[in-house]
Structure formats: structure tokens, C-alpha cells
Design a protein around this nucleic acid. Structure first.
Length: 190
DNA sequence: AAGAGGATGAACT
DNA sequence: GTTCATCCTCTTG
């Protein structure tokens, strides 16, 4: 589970939305584990309308609205009935950065464009209506691709996850990973 | 039926 | 460093 979050670093997240293709290399992730992770929406195998998709076999998207404003994008990674997911927190822009800027309403390319789970989704055009997409299907509006880029294990930094202080002992789990030294990482320190 | 609160970000002081 | 926008989902009555 945690290994999947590390493996996703360096992969390419591609969206084909509104007839436009954009993509970015994943630079920051967080792991969530349903059965025993109090920070996970599906903690203790809690199935609800929102979390149902996390019980699906891995390879689909789980997107939900946070604070009524931000669309957060996750990759469902577990086997069927194991609600595991990896939150993608930041990407490095690759294709069509101009469109990302337009979607974000900013005029220059800087980390503010895609570094952060909410802004990243906005830049890539991700919305909650793209939840439950098959990420390995070439016809899907959102896919994960591997262009051969590799991040060495020694180049991966880790820390406790962000924004989960309410999760008691789980709040200390160092399940946030990012490419060390990459500028396209969200602003939070630790 | 109603209310609380959240895996955030931007704009303030 | 603090505030608050904003709405969906879950919990409670």
C-alpha cells in the first residue's frame, strides 16, 4: 500500500477533458488505508455512497469535494473490498501548461500552478464527475501513464500526512512522499 | 429535516 | 499567523 504511493511518484497523470489533453508528472502523494487508518474516509471498512468506489478493485479514480471548493484526486489501489487509495497532491506540468494556467487564472508557470491537491485538480480540469474512471483505459478521461522516468528510492522524501491531525495516532504515520528537491511540491513543510 | 465539519487555498492583518 | 469561502456527506433527531 505504502509502496504503491512511492511507485506512483514519477508517473504521468494525463487528462482528456473538454477535448483538451493536459498532463503532469506526479511529484507528491499520500497513502490512505481503509481498514485501520483513521484519516481514511473508509476507515473501519465504512461503506457509504461516497466511499463505495474505494472498495472497488484498484485502478479507478476516487475524486471528492473538500471544503466545498476543492476537488481532490485519488487512485484506488487495493484489491476488491480493501479500501486503499493514494491521494495525488502535486504534479510537475508536462503537456499544455498554457491551458493549466488558463484554468488556474494565473499568468506564469510556478509551483502555485499545480503544487497542491486542490490546485492540481483545477489545473488538470479534474472534477468530481470524473470519479470512478478506469485509469488504465486509454479512452478514459483520466489515465496514468509510465514514460520510463524513474525516481530512485534514495530520492524520495517522506513525512506525516497533511491535514489529518484529527486522526489521532494515525496522524503521525509518515505516509506522505515526494520527490526530494523537486520544486513542484506543495508548500507544507511537515 | 437539520446541522456540523472537512485529505485546502487565497487573501488578509 | 489568521480567516473564511462554500457545499457535499454523514450523523443525529
Amino acid at each position: 500500500m505504502v509502496q504503491v504511493a512511492r511507485d506512483l511518484l514519477g508517473k504521468v497523470l494525463v487528462t482528456r477533458i473538454d477535448g483538451q489533453r493536459t498532463s503532469g508528472r506526479i511529484t507528491e502523494t499520500e497513502a490512505y488505508r481503509g481498514p485501520d487508518d483513521k484519516a481514511c474516509h473508509a476507515f473501519n471498512h465504512r461503506r457509504t455512497g461516497r466511499t463505495e468506489i474505494m472498495f472497488h478493485e484498484g485502478g479507478v479514480s476516487y475524486i471528492y469535494l473538500c471544503y466545498g471548493i476543492h476537488h481532490l484526486f485519488n487512485v484506488v489501489t487495493g484489491p476488491r473490498d480493501q479500501a486503499h487509495a493514494v491521494l495525488i497532491r502535486a504534479v510537475e506540468p508536462l503537456e499544455n501548461a498554457e491551458l493549466m494556467q488558463e484554468r488556474r487564472g494565473i499568468t506564469e508557470v510556478r509551483p502555485q500552478l499545480t503544487a497542491g491537491p486542490g490546485v492540481m485538480s483545477q489545473a488538470l480540469g479534474i472534477r468530481t464527475d470524473f470519479s470512478a474512471c478506469p485509469l488504465t483505459d486509454p479512452d478514459s478521461p483520466i489515465t496514468l501513464e509510465d514514460d520510463g522516468y524513474r525516481v530512485p528510492q534514495s530520492g524520495i522524501a517522506q513525512s506525516p500526512r497533511i491535514g489529518v491531525a484529527y486522526a489521532e495516532e494515525c496522524a503521525d504515520w509518515e505516509w506522505r512522499f515526494w520527490i526530494d528537491g523537486n520544486p513542484w511540491v506543495s508548500r507544507f513543510k511537515k
